[in-house]
């Protein structure tokens, strides 16, 4: 070694030399006339110690781990994650939490049930009854399961299809890109809900799956556009150019550099889309295009069918599902925003 160089983490004079900093073995012209300092052993040790303390010695922290660490310090992320986590727990443990079977009709509820009055809170049924004499609280709890299922599945389907289209467009470019992007432009041009309504209406028989599929399709162009744009930006980036200069195969450049670096933005978008998917599914149910199965407990359905029909009789039938949807959507949005902030390289230190 011939020049005094930085040793990562230990930029101090190397031990074994009596002169500090004479880590280079070539004589430095002009240095002889300069007064060279001499450091005592104890001070030398102290300097080493200080240098170690100042050097960021966390070592080997990848971007993802770095982002997670930052996420854990962000109160927005904590609130968002708590909300989402709470709802997921409720969904998973619904059978344990719910006091009753969500589809069972109770005699003590049905006997008071008329078109003009739906029983409120009674003993054993703190949220009262739904229009068919079922336990409303249990249906709300099971609703978390159904609603999250629709949201997660719709988002995942939309994400996969969008990533596929975006990746193909971004990787190949040229006319493939032009064709795929014009296609997504057409889809983006239609209002998303209108597109979903059309898709559901086109299906011969409406079911839970038509709703999921419709909601998923609507988010495809958003993911595709985002990934493609991000990949195009990556294609121009220095590190992709560097990989090309190294002679890395084009396929590996796409798979190892362009795609992973573009995906973070898409994954953040997915958490945001999740909230939208739940709202879209609720909207479809509200418009009567949802799942026709009357036994299915899903917040959108509950809000859209019962809540709408019996709003004047018992507004809680609308309030509770609406509140649940808003809170869970807010949770995902907060989490998504916090993630976006966490992966932003500008916040890295």
């Amino acid at each position: 070694m011939s020049d005094p160089i930085t040793q990562a983490g230990a930029p101090t004079p190397r031990s074994g030399n009596d002169k500090p900093g004479s880590g280079d073995d070539k004589p430095r012209p002009g240095m002889s006339e300069r007064s060279i300092g001499v450091l005592g052993d104890r001070k030398k040790a102290r300097l080493d110690e200080l240098a170690r303390a100042s050097a960021s010695d966390r070592g080997g922290v990848s971007l993802v781990r770095d982002a997670v660490r930052r996420l854990r310090r962000n109160p927005v992320a904590i609130v968002g994650a708590s909300i989402v986590g709470l709802f997921i727990l409720v969904a998973i443990f619904a059978p344990l939490i719910a006091p009753h079977d969500p589809v069972q009709r109770f005699d003590e509820l049905t006997k008071n049930l008329t078109v003009d009055s739906i029983p409120g809170a009674t003993a054993g049924h703190p949220f009262g009854s739904d229009p068919l004499g079922r336990d409303f609280l249990s249906r709300m709890i099971y609703g978390a399961r159904q609603t999250l299922f629709v949201g997660v599945l719709a988002t995942l389907i939309g994400l996969s299809l969008g990533v596929l289209i975006g990746a193909i467009a971004g990787a190949f470019g040229g006319w493939v890109d032009v064709v795929l992007m014009r296609l997504t432009d057409v889809m983006l041009a239609l209002p998303s809900l209108l597109l979903a309504i059309t898709l559901v209406a086109m299906a011969s028989r409406s079911s839970q799956w038509t709703v999921i599929f419709a909601v998923a399709i609507v988010s495809v162009p958003i993911f595709a556009r985002l990934l493609r744009g991000s990949m195009l930006a990556q294609r121009e980036s220095d590190h992709v150019l560097a990989a090309r200069a190294l002679g890395v195969k084009e396929r590996n450049i796409v798979l190892r550099h362009m795609l992973p670096n573009s995906l973070t933005a898409v994954i953040v978008q997915a958490t945001l889309t999740f909230a939208v998917a739940i709202l879209d599914a609720a909207a479809l149910s509200f418009l009567g295009l949802g799942d026709p199965d009357i036994n299915r407990a899903e917040w959108g359905l509950m809000l859209g069918v019962d809540g709408q029909r019996y709003f004047e009789v018992r507004p809680e039938l609308a309030y509770y599902p609406a509140l649940a949807i808003i809170v869970v959507a807010l949770g995902f949005t907060l989490l998504g925003e916090a993630m976006r902030e966490a992966i932003d390289p500008k916040n890295r230190r």
């Binding site: 990848s62 971007l63 220095d238 590190h239 560097a242 990989a243 200069a245 002679g247 992973p260 390289p345």
Partner: peptide, 27 residues
Amino acid sequence: QMIFQDPLSSLDPRQSVESLLVEGLKA
């Protein structure tokens, strides 16, 4: 081979130094 102006943007932020160096060898 090539050396770039901006050392940060020319190194893939998701790769460790080892993986950055091995990549060329693998290729």
